[in-house]
């Protein structure tokens, strides 16, 4: 590891100013990616500019929708009850990233700016229609997260720009979400595949009552779906995002379209899973072969959708049964 100059600015403006005056410089937040890349000699910057002292990047704002500062750590998100209740998929992702030690320092901004196809928080942010708020010498701009990634390790960020926060709209009623990270190990692992889904359903009054009855059951969600089949439970809106199936985290837009406006059933979810799989171009890698990843998209899209529904019909269930299907 080469030696480098280290800077610790106290404001976004100062950080941008330092960056624009330097060559071969890199921002560092939690450092859980940057330090590894330094040691592996994948990068060798002469200057490291730490964002740690910039407190305005550490906010979580839940007043209208959700705003998460780029320096918010995974552990901060884990502990946030509001996010857990309404933006559950995000907590699903942050709680499974690395280990507690890593989550204590790794930031959500870092996870996204590193732009790995496997970034855990990318899929949840995609399904919540997150916008990246970026500040640079030319001022502030907003970019749809969908357009933020350009490829592995590449984003739309210019050299002198800083990712300030993610901004997500308020969710409609009767919305549930989930992220499933498919790994070999329970922790300290990168996903073979990551799938996030969000679904909004329409419930008439009668259905709402029957759904409430289901709160008391410990039935698996597949059974509940079976029971609800005759209710005409309709999907109003859906989002599906997938990680590690393309050079960047992607939305399965055809699958989303196939879901919108339809009456919900397991068969539909299976169909949607097939469509999502057809939208992916996974590669063979050491973590999983392409055929296996394609197969798993079908399974995980179905399961994530079921888990999302479960969170709507049984919102107060603290611990979701391990096997919902």
């Amino acid at each position: 590891m080469r030696s480098f100059e280290y800077y610790k600015p106290n404001s976004i403006e100062e950080a941008i100013k330092i960056m624009s005056g330097l060559d071969n410089a890199k921002f560092i937040a939690g450092g859980t990616d940057v330090m590894v890349q330094l040691r592996q000699k994948k990068i060798s910057p002469q200057h490291l500019i730490s964002l740690r002292n910039i407190s305005e990047l550490r906010n979580i704002d839940t007043k209208d929708g959700l705003k998460i500062g780029s320096l918010v750590t995974h552990d901060d998100i884990d502990k946030n009850e509001y996010i857990k209740k309404y933006y559950s998929a995000l907590t699903d992702a942050t709680s499974r990233l690395g280990s507690k030690q890593i989550r204590n320092v790794a930031t959500i901004g870092g996870n996204i700016c590193n732009a790995a196809p496997s970034a855990d928080t990318a899929c949840p942010l995609l399904i919540f229609d997150a916008k990246a708020v970026i500040i640079g010498t030319k001022g502030e701009r907003e970019v749809d997260l969908n357009e933020f990634f350009l490829g592995p390790g590449k984003t739309v960020l210019e050299k002198d720009e800083i990712l300030k926060e993610f901004s997500m709209p308020r969710l409609k009623e009767n919305t549930g979400s989930a992220y499933i990270k498919h790994t070999r190990r329970e922790a300290m692992d990168l996903p073979i595949l990551g799938v996030a889904t969000r679904i909004t359903i329409s419930l008439d009054k009668d259905s709402q009552i029957r759904c409430r009855d289901l709160l008391c059951t410990i039935d698996s969600i597949s059974n509940i779906l079976m029971q609800l089949k005759d209710e005409g439970l309709k999907c109003e809106e859906a989002r599906i995002a997938m990680g590690v199936v393309a050079p960047k985290p992607i939305r399965a837009k055809k699958a989303e379209e196939a879901l919108a406006g339809k009456i919900i059933s397991i068969e539909l979810f299976e169909e949607v899973g097939e469509i999502a799989a057809s939208e992916a171009q996974p590669r063979d890698s050491i973590r999983g072969e392409a055929w296996y990843r394609k197969e798993m998209i079908k399974v995980l899209v179905k399961r994530a959708l079921m888990k999302s529904i479960d969170r709507i019909v049984r919102p107060d269930e603290e611990i979701y049964p391990e096997r919902l299907w």
Partner: peptide, 16 residues
């Protein structure tokens, strides 16, 4: 050897 490190060589953890 494709997995000489402990990220890709899966030694079980306490939670496993």
């Amino acid at each position: 050897l494709l997995n000489p490190d402990l990220l890709e060589y899966k030694v079980p953890l306490a939670c496993d």
